[in-house]
């Protein structure tokens, strides 16, 4: 039996993981995809039980690859499966395929960003193995159309409830995603060039004037918490692809730029002419954002009026 087992606890990623599994099956030459579902919601307290249950199903189904979503929990599940089965893990991979060259054993290969997205690495693991895919790696609709066989669904059976080593105390839900950065056409992002949280009204107004939404560099959304984490763009946040991306007071470190590369047009506003963001921008305004953004707002208004 040659199969690929797909699982993600994230509803948003589950369909993409299933599509990825179907694609790998094709290159396996006649494999079939198995979608694992769990009746219990995987959490930081029970991820070990989830991993163990996946190992059981993978064994039974003769899985060559266990494919997971590269979420924070998904990485932990991958780690446990790998140690339990002594298998390699390919992280954050796209373009997955099974390749064999010159009589050597078949390998799963994929492409992933390394060195903060400055480079892509082609990585390979001996089979069987585990792989995690980022959001956006596979279009969900491609799955059923291309696969030779519709994927089977199995429920993973969590073993008898063992006392959890990591005790759950409390869940504090984050405010529901009010913004959809992934499909936004215009994004205006704020960085540490802003001196106060209150000043962010400047990017909010600019985004509104352009019919766009507000994004953030990691320090603003994570460390300072001035903007919600759902707005965190970059290597460790969201990858965006708007027609117009405007970076305001963002230096343009590799990790941030990794998330905006697919933008059609990139604009940067920064007072430091040497800021790396200007190297990856189509248009840049060298100047103080506290003067430039109001000037932009005024110009847009004048234009709208005429």
């Amino acid at each position: 039996m040659r199969s690929v087992l797909a699982f993600s606890e994230s509803p948003a990623l589950a369909a993409e993981v299933a599509a990825g599994a179907a694609t790998i099956c094709e290159s396996l030459g006649g494999g079939f995809a198995v979608i694992a579902v769990s009746s219990e919601t995987p959490s930081p307290s029970n991820f070990e039980a989830v991993a163990d249950a996946i190992v059981e199903v993978a064994k039974r189904e003769g899985a060559q690859v266990v494919l997971l979503g590269a979420t924070r929990l998904g990485r932990q599940v991958a780690a446990r499966i790998a140690v339990k089965t002594s298998q390699g893990v390919l992280s954050d991979v796209r373009d997955l395929r099974v390749e064999s060259s010159g009589g050597a054993a078949a390998m799963l290969t994929g492409v992933r960003p390394v060195f903060a997205g400055k480079f892509n690495a082609k990585v390979a693991s001996v089979l069987p193995c585990v792989a995690t895919i980022p959001s956006g790696a596979y279009a969900p609709q491609g799955a059923s159309a291309s696969s030779t066989q519709p994927p089977a669904t199995v429920e993973i059976a969590m073993g008898p409830k063992a006392p959890e080593r990591v005790k759950h105390i409390e869940t504090r839900p984050k405010p529901k995603n009010t913004v959809d950065l992934k499909s936004a056409e215009v994004i205006v992002s704020a960085g540490r060039g802003f001196k106060n949280k209150e000043d962010l009204v400047l990017v909010e107004n600019l985004a509104e004037a352009l019919g766009g939404v507000v994004g953030a560099s990691r320090p603003l959304s994570s460390d300072l918490g001035w903007l919600g984490e759902e707005r965190h763009i970059g290597l460790t946040g969201i990858y965006v692809r708007p027609s117009l991306y405007i970076a305001v007071g963002i230096s343009g470190q590799l990790q941030h730029v990794a998330g905006i590369k697919d933008s059609k047009i990139i604009v940067a506003i920064n007072k430091d002419k040497q800021a790396p963001i200007f190297q990856v921008a189509d248009y840049g305004i060298v100047g103080d954002l506290y003067l430039v953004v109001p000037a932009l707002l005024k110009a847009i208004e004048t234009q709208k009026a005429s």
Partner: peptide
């Protein structure tokens, strides 16, 4: 079990046009 087969630079070519005049002009 995991090997790196090849590492290549991600390419990104941008226009890099800079405006350095007054805020109003640049805007």
């Amino acid at each position: 079990a995991v090997r790196v087969l090849d590492t290549t630079a991600q390419s990104m070519s941008r226009k890099k046009i800079l405006f350095e005049g007054s805020p109003e002009e640049s805007a």
